[in-house]
């Protein structure tokens, strides 16, 4: 195939990936509106968002095709993969601590029982701030 044909293939692949990513952004928006409680909404904000971003940036990389900008896109993808679970964890923990998680909607809730059991204990590790807990 000629270079022009490869370039067309890359363009088509790029737009397909972009459509996939846009669809996942749409699904994330629908999810965060429809789901009933904070923890479920976090699922919608983490998983489709990460994959959607990966697809969209892959589409962009195929379109740009060369140059240093493509490596920066790789970096954004790696950042998102590393940081989305951390953000979800912190939001979930804050939700438990401020009482935003209502036990009624959950089928099984082992964390509330554990937190109630620990409630009288002084200075647990999870209260020491987010930075000291990981690593």
């Amino acid at each position: 195939m000629t270079a022009a044909a490869w370039s067309t293939v890359a363009d088509v692949a790029s737009i397909v990936l972009m459509l996939g990513g846009a669809f996942l952004c749409f699904a994330a928006g629908v999810g965060v509106l429809r789901f009933r409680d904070l923890l479920a909404r976090m699922h919608a904000a983490t998983k489709p968002q990460v994959l959607g971003l990966v697809l969209v940036l892959a589409g962009l990389a195929l379109r740009l095709r060369s140059g240093g900008a493509v490596w920066a896109l790789v970096l954004v993808v790696v950042f998102q993969l590393l940081t989305a679970p951390v953000a979800a964890h912190l939001v979930g923990r804050a939700g438990y601590r401020t009482g935003k998680v209502s036990p009624g909607v959950l089928a099984v809730d082992e964390l509330t029982a554990e937190l109630d059991r620990r409630h009288g204990m002084p200075a647990d590790d999870e209260d020491g701030g987010s930075g000291a807990d990981i690593g």
Binding site: L53, V76, T98
Partner: peptide, 18 residues
């Protein structure tokens, strides 16, 4: 709650990036 709003705005930022 504020946390719901935080999660929602995180999605808005991602849509902006897209």
């Amino acid at each position: 709650s504020m946390l719901d709003r935080t999660v929602a705005l995180d999605i808005v930022v991602t849509c902006l990036v897209a």
